[in-house]
């Protein structure tokens, strides 16, 4: 019986937590306008990979590379 009460309370709390999350999401969507930082990569003209090594040691000293 105690277990059943506990599970029922957990179900109610889960419902409230889900409600809280969805409301916060809706509120952010509704009242925060233009929060994205778009077009960030437009400024990068070139990208060069000078050196690439796979499966290196975790303790690799990048200053010595």
């Amino acid at each position: 019986m105690e277990q059943l009460i506990f599970i029922a309370v957990a179900g109610v709390v889960f419902g409230l937590a889900l409600d809280f999350y969805l409301m916060a999401d809706q509120l952010k969507d509704s009242n925060e306008i233009g929060n994205s930082k778009c077009g960030r990569l437009d400024y990068m003209v070139t990208f060069d990979l000078f050196a690439s090594k796979d499966n290196v040691s975790k303790s690799l000293d990048i200053d010595k590379m």
């Binding site: 400024y43 990068m44 003209v45 070139t46 990208f47 060069d48 990979l49 000078f50 050196a51 690439s52 090594k53 796979d54 499966n55 290196v56 040691s57 975790k58 690799l60 990048i62 590379m65």
Partner: peptide, 15 residues
């Protein structure tokens, strides 16, 4: 879990 080393550069224009 693998570890990687990268040496890369980029040029940014009028940022």
């Amino acid at each position: 879990t693998k570890y990687y080393y990268r040496d890369a550069g980029a040029f940014f224009s009028e940022i």
